[in-house]
């Protein structure tokens, strides 16, 4: 585990929302770049599990995700974040920073630092349980010419 620096404690602005969907919830996130939209999408998911303002940054973990295209990369990225929460170290994050974002060649790859703390009942209000990420109606909009980077993901809750 790495040390946490002062600058790690600043939280990014909120660039996500929750959209309407019958049985599940759709995350809509955006940013000034595709990695930022991905990061925001990750935080949006954590935001559904608890009230993020209660999360202190005490711990940082690094995760890696791979995929064969953008969609599967996003899917596995979110799945890794969910896995981080679901078992040891039970981490809930208020900030995720993508340090490596490779979207060329055979294997697309993300490396990401996740900032947060162990989920503790009593301290963190219980939101809804995210059970799985789905590909259903997944959309990734990457239009650098319009500076338009958006992702839509439905999570199973």
């Amino acid at each position: 585990m790495e040390d946490i620096l002062e600058e790690d404690l600043t939280l990014p602005p909120c660039k996500y929302e929750y959209l309407d969907h019958t049985a599940d919830v759709q995350l809509h996130a955006w940013g000034d770049s595709l990695p930022e939209a991905f990061e925001q999408c990750g935080i949006a998911m954590y935001g559904y599990m608890t009230t993020l303002s209660t999360v202190e940054i005490k711990e940082v973990r690094e995760i890696e995700a791979t995929g064969h295209d953008l969609e599967s990369l996003l899917y596995h990225f979110l799945d890794e974040l969910l896995f981080l929460f679901s078992c040891e170290p039970f981490l809930i994050c208020s900030k995720v920073v993508i340090t490596e974002f490779i979207t060329e060649g055979e294997d697309f790859r993300i490396k990401c630092k996740c900032y947060g703390e162990e989920f503790t009942l009593g301290k963190h209000p219980q939101g809804t349980e995210v059970k799985a990420i789905t590909y259903s109606a997944m959309q990734i909009i990457s239009e650098p010419e319009h500076n338009k980077f958006q992702v839509f993901v439905i999570i199973d809750i």
Partner: peptide, 17 residues
């Protein structure tokens, strides 16, 4: 392994939703 890791701490819990 991933399923087992997720399952172990949750056995005997009601869940949400």
């Amino acid at each position: 392994m991933r399923a087992k890791k997720r399952g172990l701490p949750q056995l005997g819990t009601l869940g949400a939703g």
